[in-house]
Simulated assay, not measured.
Amino acid sequence: MRVDEIDRKILRQMQADPDLPMSALANRAGLTSSACARRLEKMREAGIYRGQQAVINWAALGYNVEVYLRVTLDKTQPRAFDDFIEEARKIPEVSEVHTFLGRVDVRLAVLARDMAHYQEIYKTRILTLPHITDIEALMRVSSIKDTEILPV
């Protein structure tokens, strides 16, 4: 799908204020509500616009510890990635799973209420994941920039 300037305008408005009602979004893009909805649907079908989601402040809900684990897998095992990822996705406190090229194969983001909760997750769930050869833990101290907004 080719994205034109009107599509870009819609995307910019969605990034700036994702709670805009369709009528306001359409007005800002210079379209009717139905034309704006059709454009959004085309962008959704093309995989450009994936929809909206709730952004939750986990710390406000008592999850005060965020640890990133850089995991190296035993790549001599043919199913190492598949097995590891399948099991890691089952851990509710794992909020992100990313794969990489290089020395680190997978990065997990783990949310916990406190250090005792993190240690319990680490001992009983993370260390039991298959094919791990090395883990490095990085504890988040602060978030300097946290956005998915890019110039469109």
Rank of each mutant, 00 (worst) to 15 (best):
residue 28 R to D: 08
residue 28 R to K: 12
residue 28 R to L: 05
residue 29 A to Y: 12
residue 29 A to M: 08
residue 30 G to S: 12
residue 30 G to I: 15
residue 30 G to H: 13
residue 30 G to A: 08
residue 31 L to T: 08
residue 31 L to I: 03
residue 32 T to Q: 11
residue 32 T to D: 08
residue 33 S to W: 01
residue 34 S to W: 11
residue 35 A to F: 00
residue 36 C to E: 12
residue 36 C to S: 13
residue 37 A to F: 05
residue 38 R to T: 09
residue 38 R to H: 08
residue 39 R to T: 06
residue 39 R to I: 01
residue 40 L to R: 10
residue 40 L to M: 09
residue 41 E to L: 11
residue 41 E to W: 11
residue 41 E to R: 03
residue 42 K to N: 06
residue 42 K to W: 02
residue 42 K to E: 07
residue 43 M to H: 10
residue 43 M to Q: 13
residue 43 M to W: 15
residue 43 M to G: 14
residue 43 M to L: 05
residue 44 R to C: 04
residue 45 E to C: 05
residue 46 A to P: 04
residue 46 A to C: 07
residue 47 G to L: 02
residue 49 Y to N: 11
residue 49 Y to S: 02
residue 49 Y to I: 03
residue 49 Y to T: 00
residue 50 R to K: 09
residue 50 R to P: 02
residue 50 R to W: 14
residue 51 G to M: 07
residue 51 G to N: 13
residue 52 Q to N: 15
residue 52 Q to K: 08
residue 52 Q to G: 10
residue 53 Q to N: 08
residue 54 A to D: 15
residue 54 A to I: 15
residue 55 V to Y: 15
residue 55 V to Q: 10
residue 56 I to A: 09
residue 56 I to R: 07
residue 56 I to M: 10
residue 56 I to F: 13
residue 57 N to D: 11
residue 57 N to Q: 08
residue 57 N to S: 13
residue 58 W to S: 14
residue 58 W to G: 05
residue 58 W to D: 10
residue 59 A to M: 05
residue 60 A to W: 12
residue 60 A to H: 15
residue 61 L to R: 12
residue 61 L to A: 15
residue 61 L to H: 12
residue 62 G to R: 04
residue 62 G to I: 01
residue 62 G to W: 02
residue 63 Y to Q: 03
residue 64 N to W: 01
residue 64 N to G: 06
residue 66 E to W: 13
residue 66 E to F: 04
residue 66 E to G: 04
residue 66 E to D: 13
residue 67 V to F: 05
residue 67 V to M: 08
residue 68 Y to P: 00
residue 68 Y to C: 00
residue 69 L to G: 04
residue 69 L to N: 06
residue 69 L to H: 02
residue 69 L to E: 05
residue 70 R to V: 00
residue 70 R to K: 06
residue 70 R to L: 05
residue 70 R to F: 03
residue 70 R to E: 01
residue 71 V to F: 12
residue 71 V to C: 12
residue 71 V to G: 01
residue 72 T to W: 06
residue 72 T to M: 04
residue 73 L to P: 06
residue 74 D to A: 11
residue 74 D to V: 04
residue 75 K to P: 03
residue 75 K to W: 05
residue 76 T to D: 08
residue 76 T to S: 14
residue 76 T to H: 14
residue 77 Q to P: 00
residue 77 Q to E: 11
residue 77 Q to I: 03
residue 79 R to C: 01
residue 79 R to N: 02
residue 79 R to I: 00
